[in-house]
């Protein structure tokens, strides 16, 4: 019996010795990062409503999955439409991390309206395919949380919207800024 108890203590001690290095690496409070964390957000693809014939007024909606809905506008066949695509990339301060939760705030700062050649256009009612953030109105801030399993975590998402048009007597090439302000607010793990 004494031999048996001694053997148990030795086993527990080995277990603790193995776990300590892992805990040091996994705790953000105790990690010794060789590099600082980085976060970038870029626009990969514009939100394109295509080429439209509008008599009077109308609207066209492009969903994040690329499907479209027309109301009082006629899209021409030689044009293409697509949702905007953005990519956010977060690289953890320590490359040793393989699993963490990332919390990001996404803000669209302002409404988008313009008038060209007497044609008035407004882009609004933005939608995204980010989980938990299906709509994104100008001035609104939304938060998403995503699970990352590598040190560098890449989030590719799409943004759709609705273009409302009041046409004039001439055609117009319309471009609207779509600004997204993104912030990493929390890294868990």
């Amino acid at each position: 019996m004494p031999k048996l108890r001694l053997s148990y203590r030795i086993g527990a001690g080995r277990l603790l010795a193995c776990m300590v290095p892992v805990l040091i690496a996994a705790s953000p409070g105790t990690a010794r990062a060789a590099t600082a964390a980085t976060f970038t957000a870029i626009a990969n693809q514009p939100l394109s409503f295509g080429t439209l014939v509008v008599s009077g007024s109308g609207s066209r909606t492009i969903a994040p999955d690329g499907t479209s809905t027309n109301n009082g506008v006629l899209p021409l066949g030689d044009s293409t439409s697509s949702p905007a695509q953005f990519t956010m990339t977060y690289t953890h301060a320590s490359g040793l991390f393989i699993f963490y939760l990332l919390q990001i705030q996404v803000t669209m700062p302002s409404a988008n309206s313009t008038t060209v050649n007497g044609v008035q256009g407004t882009v609004s009612n933005f939608t995204t395919d980010l989980p938990g953030l299906t709509t994104l109105q100008p001035g609104q801030t939304g938060t998403i949380t995503t699970t990352c399993v590598t040190a560098t975590c890449t989030i590719v998402f799409h943004v759709g919207g609705t273009l409302n048009i009041t046409s004039g007597t001439r055609g117009a090439q319309m471009v609207f800024p779509v600004m997204l302000i993104t912030s990493v607010t929390q890294v868990l793990g």
């Binding site: 805990l23 705790s27 953000p28 409070g29 600082a36 964390a37 980085t38 976060f39 970038t40 957000a41 626009a43 693809q45 514009p46 939100l47 394109s48 409503f49 295509g50 080429t51 439209l52 014939v53 509008v54 008599s55 066209r60 021409l76 044009s79 905007a84 953005f86 956010m88 977060y90 301060a93 044609v119 256009g121 882009v123 943004v159 919207g161 273009l163 048009i165 046409s167 004039g168 007597t169 001439r170 055609g171 117009a172 090439q173 319309m174 471009v175 609207f176 800024p177 779509v178 600004m179 997204l180 302000i181 993104t182 912030s183 990493v184 607010t185 929390q186 890294v187 868990l188 793990g189």
Partner: peptide, 27 residues
């Protein structure tokens, strides 16, 4: 402790995209 401790945010990033449309006058 390791799973509950939040790390500091890495910062902000702004992505400047565009939306575009070509409007043609009716026939």
């Amino acid at each position: 402790f390791a799973w509950s401790a939040p790390a500091l945010a890495a910062g902000h990033a702004t992505a400047a995209g565009v939306a575009s449309a070509t409007i043609v006058s009716p026939l």
